[in-house]
């Protein structure tokens, strides 16, 4: 049997605030298959975003092991982690976090500046990413000239520009109206189905979580519930029950 793509083993993450030690993740273990679409749910402070950050390589565990593909993320140096993020991870933020002084094109081009691509190759790649998210005609627009939904689509184009294997999304619909949120979820589903991206998404929204293939419910830093979809999606009922419980 093939090894899972994301392997999290007995992860502990603690923060020290003054003299107090705060345990955010407490010996959590989790595996995610390649091409899976996982929703992380749980109340505030349950450790969802911390887990996402650890998978993305922007934070380090206090103890335990995280491996993504062939990368031993938990034991990497700062420089290696930066390289790992640029090559393997696409990050989607709740507040889009586009650079306001750059156009949509330039924002999407940012992660490609870390590759060895020529200017022409970069242009081609940016145009492709923007066309996937349906914004090929807005590439010269600045973030302030775009709606919230469009900004998030540009952010998704930026996340997929380097063709990473994993997309991590932190409340990607949290700042959007229902219609725009729905468009983003359709886009994420397409990236998962069509482009075989492994997606790990943190959300409070049962509607968003229902579109995932798997729902992982955290509470107080431990895995409380792990629901796998019987069909294509987890479904709204299961997602709602995870929120209630």
């Amino acid at each position: 049997m093939a090894e899972p793509f994301i392997r999290i083993e007995s992860i502990v993450k603690q923060y020290v605030r003054d003299t107090q030690v705060l345990t955010v993740l407490d010996g959590l273990s989790l595996s995610v298959e390649e091409g899976d679409f996982v929703a992380l749910m749980g109340p505030s402070g349950s450790g969802k975003t911390t887990l996402l950050n650890l998978i993305a390589g922007i934070d380090k565990p206090t103890s335990g092991r995280i491996a993504v593909g062939k990368s031993e993320v938990s034991s990497m140096s700062e420089a290696a982690l930066a390289r790992y993020r640029s090559e393997n991870i696409g990050f989607i933020f709740q507040l889009y976090n586009l650079v306001p002084v750059l156009t949509a094109f330039e924002n999407v081009e940012l992660p490609l500046l870390l590759t060895k691509m020529s200017r022409a190759q970069r242009r081609k790649q940016v145009e492709l990413a923007l066309s996937i998210v349906g914004l090929a005609d807005r590439m010269d627009h600045y973030p302030r000239q775009l709606s919230g939904g469009q900004e998030q689509r540009v952010a998704i184009a930026r996340a997929i520009a380097t063709d990473p294997k994993v997309l991590v999304a932190d409340e990607p619909t949290g700042d959007l109206d229902a219609k725009s949120g729905e468009e983003i979820l359709i886009l994420l589903e397409r990236l998962n189905d069509e482009f075989k991206k492994t997606i790990v998404m943190v959300t409070h929204d049962p509607r968003a979580a229902s579109r995932a293939h798997r729902l992982v419910h955290l509470d107080k830093g431990v895995l409380k519930e792990d629901i796998r979809a019987e069909g294509r999606e987890v479904g709204l009922e299961a997602a709602r029950s995870a929120v209630v419980s």
Partner: peptide, 9 residues
């Protein structure tokens, strides 16, 4: 965000 994208220190 730039560092998240992989830009080194």
């Amino acid at each position: 965000v730039l560092r998240t994208l992989g830009f080194p220190k």
